[in-house]
């Protein structure tokens, strides 16, 4: 008896595995069902979707949704815009966050507490929508691509993660040792800090890339030209085309017909809009766990 106890798991452990297995399976189903549903609906015929016949697998398989998506000329251009905003915006974010985080990680920086306070203050309080609009207007950023790239260039949250990472993983002795060898601060940043913080850079890149990819509110408010719109706006337009608000429309019969066409489009569009950013994740995942963990342990 006593020996078996040592060689196999105790019953409490078994129970634990069974119960957690159940719970995790349930969560897996709950999380994956909507994804599978969207994918199946995007490959089904419009009629099957709008009458709710699609449950798990595609019902009378068709590509009409995808045909309609790529027939819309805006989509291709919007795709390009989103890529541009994402790449540029992420570049700006990572640059600003890493330089700022490095400076604030050095204990020798004068007024470090003061800077930190200013930064964190903006995390919790902002001027609000109208002052922000006025600011954008006076900076002449309205209706330019920079309205999508520059606002929020420094994410304080990401900066704190990066700062903590640098503080905890790069010992102060390294700076002393290199400075004895005649290494400047800038050189230390480029030759030691950046290569050693690959994990946290990967995390910040993913955070900001996903943020830029999904950004739509700024586009909605600060862009007036259709040629500048990112993909999310177009996606949203097609999604709400589905809703018929009869009170405002004069010819609801026409509107109802329009809504039916939109039902098919929307699932294909969701697939088209999310797949590229999903593809980035596997490449970053190995850094991801490590990076976030270190950031979260020390605040």
């Amino acid at each position: 008896m006593g020996q078996t106890k040592f060689s196999t798991h105790p019953t409490s452990d078994k129970m634990y595995y069974i119960i957690s297995g159940f719970i995790l399976t349930f969560i897996l189903i709950a999380v994956s069902y909507p994804l599978i549903y969207v994918l199946s609906a995007s490959f089904s015929s419009g009629n099957a979707v709008s009458s709710g016949q699609v449950l798990l697998w595609p019902v009378d398989f068709s590509l009409e949704g995808y045909e309609a998506v790529f027939k819309n000329k805006d989509i291709v251009r919007a795709y390009g815009n989103t890529f541009l905003y994402t790449i540029l915006g992420t570049l700006v974010n990572v640059t600003v966050v890493m330089t700022c985080a490095y400076a604030l990680s050095r204990p020798g920086l004068k007024g470090r507490g003061g800077f930190m306070f200013l930064f964190t203050f903006t995390m919790f309080f902002s001027g609000g929508l109208i002052p922000f609009y006025i600011l954008m207007k006076d900076l002449h950023l309205i209706n330019t691509m920079w309205a999508m790239v520059l606002p929020g260039a420094l994410s304080v949250y990401n900066m704190i993660i990066a700062r903590t990472f640098i503080q905890s993983s790069i010992p102060g002795e390294l700076i002393e040792a290199t400075s004895i060898d005649g290494c400047s601060d800038a050189r230390f940043f480029f030759s030691f800090v950046l290569p050693l913080s690959k994990a946290v850079i990967a995390v910040i890149t993913l955070f900001s890339a996903v943020g830029h990819w999904n950004a739509y509110f700024n586009a909605l408010m600060y862009l007036n030209d259709r040629s500048l719109y990112p993909l999310q706006i177009i996606l949203r337009e097609i999604l709400i085309m589905n809703q018929v608000d009869v009170s405002m429309i004069m010819d609801p019969e026409l509107q109802v017909a329009k809504a039916q066409a939109a039902a098919v489009l929307k699932y294909s569009l969701i697939v088209v809009a999310t797949v590229p950013i999903l593809c980035v994740y596997p490449f970053i995942q190995k850094y991801f766990v490590k990076g976030v963990m270190i950031g979260s342990l020390k605040g």
Partner: peptide
């Protein structure tokens, strides 16, 4: 010349 507002009424 056009200035495009969001397609949702509230926005």
């Amino acid at each position: 010349k056009f200035l495009e507002l969001p397609s949702q009424a509230e926005e």
